[in-house]
Design a binder for these strands. Structure first.
Lengths: 217, 217
DNA sequence: CTAATCTGGATAGCGTCACTATCCAACTAT
DNA sequence: ATAGTTGGATAGTGACGCTATCCAGATTAG
């Protein structure tokens, strides 16, 4: 299939596909001539994946590339994929220190304590550690007394969530498909999970204070 | 305090504070003269809050304003605050339909079914419903068989999380402080919660497949 | 009182990001 | 042959989040 058909089938404008190709998010098609290339279903699939990550999940193009790269690279090693590719969070979040040397041991003491308390086996380099420590620091700078122990109940819940995630992955056998599903379940589910939390919060709030009232504004 | 002191104490550049004032994120100070205004501790606090939402959490300035506005408006009605202000997610996520009329009943059938199944009492207008349905649609468009029932276990976990959230809020009595803490706990905790999930995922993955190995890259 | 400094408000500019539009030579279908 | 399409390169666009410059009015030091 040529670029126009790819565009028609995916709903992504022609020029945008070219842009993704330039940025390396989408692998180039098989060149059949100097000004002609052939794309296949994998390209279509990848394209849809890109739109899901950048659109629904709101990842930046660079972050999406990072994830996608990790997905295709470590497709045989789910463990690594899960650990490595997931240091994205918001487009901003540039932690000034540790920009080069990686995370020195003890750089994220609270996350380390939490991981330890949970008995988790997690790489020292997992960027999620930083995210935890950063959040805690921010919360405290705003005058909220919050430390890693306050996160323990959440960690417990996170563990069950993860257990459920991994169980769903077990059903898939093909490594490539498995890697893709891991990315999908981890990333695309995040907005839904947060949405569920908000729904549950409103419900809890309703149960505790006001009754079933809801303003129509 | 004048603008320069506000800048010094918050670490936010002078020009940026002016920008926030222009955008309405920061309420104007009490004008003492044509070219002079007085700011107080609430401005400093607000400023820190803005930076936390836009920086750590990655909200756009417009989204942060939305949240902050809701926070100060509905400071007496936590229930509404929780329900209304939280339809932000990523900067992108522009759902083409329902741009004006709000969510018509039955617009998000899956979220509705889920809410119903959980026995939750949640406003029809809570944008989190849309987020749920949107995610489900995206997932399915990518060939993953996923419906609201698959989300039930997550909803259960979300409920416990929310329960824990609300319990923490109970300890605060002052309505204004309570509203602020609600925003903080809901929004700023999100990256941490997702980070916990990833840590737990890596741990689970390690437990199931590879042992305690971690590549040092 | 004058002069140097600071202030708030308005306006314009900047760098990044995610596209989008235009060109053009090479290719294909007729 | 010729009209239309393609891939690739380059440049432009609009939104966003600041940042820099101006300027009249205000404050403060002497």
């Amino acid at each position: 299939m040529r670029i126009s058909e790819l565009s028609r089938r995916s709903g992504v404008p022609n020029a945008t596909i070219k842009y993704y190709l330039r940025e390396g998010l989408l692998p180039p098609g098989r060149a059949t001539a100097a000004t002609q290339a052939e794309y296949d279903e994998t390209h279509l699939r990848r394209l849809r994946l890109i739109r899901a990550l950048t659109g629904a999940r709101g990842l930046s193009v660079a972050s999406a590339k990072h994830v996608l790269d990790a997905m295709t690279e470590h497709r045989t090693d789910l463990h690594q994929l899960l650990g490595i590719a997931f240091g994205i969070r918001p487009p901003a979040g540039v932690t000034p220190d540790a920009a080069e040397g990686g995370a020195p041991a003890g750089a994220n003491p609270e996350a380390a304590a939490l991981v330890d308390a949970m008995g988790w086996s997690v790489s020292e380099h997992n960027p999620a550690r930083q995210a935890v420590d950063e959040t805690l620091r921010t919360l405290r700078s705003l005058g909220i007394a919050y430390d890693w122990e306050a996160l323990l109940p959440y960690a417990e819940l996170a563990q069950r969530t993860a257990r459920h995630d991994l169980e769903q992955l077990e059903t898939v056998t093909d490594p490539m498909e498995k890697a893709e599903r891991a990315v999908l379940l981890t990333f695309l589910l995040e907005p839904a999970l947060m949405a569920l939390r908000r729904l549950a919060q409103e419900n809890e709030s309703a149960a505790r204070h006001g009754g079933g009232e809801h303003t129509s504004t």
